[in-house]
């Protein structure tokens, strides 16, 4: 074992020297348990990396894992292969990034959706509450029943932040509007259960909901589908999902994980990469609401004007949207 270890460390040392001599730029992405093709969050990161590859011709590596213990393994493996920077997608990587970043102080690490400490770590967060606020406004203005719905994925603080921003937006337009909230489940599969999404949406429609916001990854596809079938409106999430059911998807709360990954690769390539916390909101174009040809007929000029005014007010700080995660509580229900 001892000899083996020596050999490994020699190999690592040799590889390190080689890398400093040739210094090929080789970024990497590691996805969380939901997997690379989750039609949502991880897939957005994948698209960002692909975009980077297309633009620069630089190849990248990626990997998926299936348990907590494997998170450190995958990061270490990438670091040993001299991948740099290494982007870890998802909050569940927090501790693993902190541990492995310490072991490889010369490698740059990036974590999305969480804060990890370390001088060689960059943490990218999103102000999901800001975008949710805007789509909440759209929902309230569109609703005729004064009852709107929210369907979340797994019941974690992140998804509560979506819900809380949404409710604030609804109440901003009409403070007596009712918001019916449901979470899909208690395991990560809650983000990939379209059938359950359909059911939850139907039950919300039965209770008078006529606009529903799905912040639930793949589960949301079922929500959108069922809104279309019932002649109601839905709101997509993460990617622009307006095109899925034109005329039924009112808008989408866009979270640009792809841009975050793409930009961090670019920064690293151009040597402008900096460690620390970066929070992307409306102002930084990390978060937005989607308005395109597909939903243009649904958004009246008055709606558009009010949302745009609110958007500017949030950016300038005139409207303060409370982040659920600040105190793990929401001021409105």
């Amino acid at each position: 074992m001892k000899i083996e270890l020596k050999r490994v460390s020699l190999a690592v040392a040799a590889a390190m020297m080689a890398s400093s001599a040739f210094a090929a730029f080789a970024p990497a992405v590691v996805y969380d348990q939901a997997g690379k093709f989750d039609k949502s969050f991880n897939e957005a990161a994948y698209k960002g990396a692909e975009q980077f590859k297309k633009e620069t011709g630089v190849a990248y590596r990626d990997a998926q894992i299936s348990s907590d213990a494997q998170k450190e393994q995958v990061l270490r493996d990438m670091a040993r292969k001299n991948m740099d920077p290494i982007v870890a997608v998802g909050f569940s990587y927090t501790q693993a990034v902190e541990t492995v970043a310490k072991e490889f102080p010369k490698t740059r690490f990036v974590i999305i959706d969480s804060v990890a400490k370390g001088p060689n770590v960059k943490s990218i967060l999103f102000k999901e509450q800001e975008g949710s606020f805007l789509v909440g406004m759209a929902a309230a203005m569109k609703s005729k029943t004064n009852t709107v719905g929210f369907i979340g994925g797994m019941d974690v603080p992140l998804i509560r932040a979506f819900a809380c921003g949404y409710v604030q937006g609804v109440k901003y337009v009409n403070k007596d509007d009712k918001v019916i909230q449901n979470m899909t489940g208690t395991t990560p599969s809650a983000f990939n259960d379209p059938a359950r999404g359909t059911e939850l949406a139907k039950s919300q429609f039965d209770r008078g909901v006529d606009v529903v916001f799905a912040a639930a990854g793949g589960t949301g596809l079922g929500v959108l589908q069922s809104a279309k079938a019932a002649g109601k409106y839905s709101i997509g999430v993460d990617s622009n999902q307006n095109y899925l059911h034109p005329g039924s998807v009112l808008t989408s709360m866009v979270k640009r994980v792809d841009i975050a990954v793409h930009n961090t690769f670019m920064d690293a390539k151009n040597n402008t990469w900096k460690p620390g916390i970066e929070v992307l909101g409306l102002k930084e174009n990390g978060i937005d609401w989607a308005l395109d040809a597909n939903n243009r007929p649904l958004i009246t000029p008055d709606m558009e004007k009010r949302i745009k005014t609110a958007r500017a007010a949030i950016i300038s700080g005139k409207i303060k949207v409370v982040d659920y995660r600040a105190n793990n509580s929401c001021p409105v229900q």
Partner: peptide, 19 residues
């Protein structure tokens, strides 16, 4: 699953943690 998610997410969660 449900019980533990509630307990970890709402009761035992590290104060100030987003995870």
């Amino acid at each position: 699953y449900s019980l533990m998610l509630y307990l970890i997410g709402h009761q035992l969660i590290e104060p100030g943690s987003q995870n």
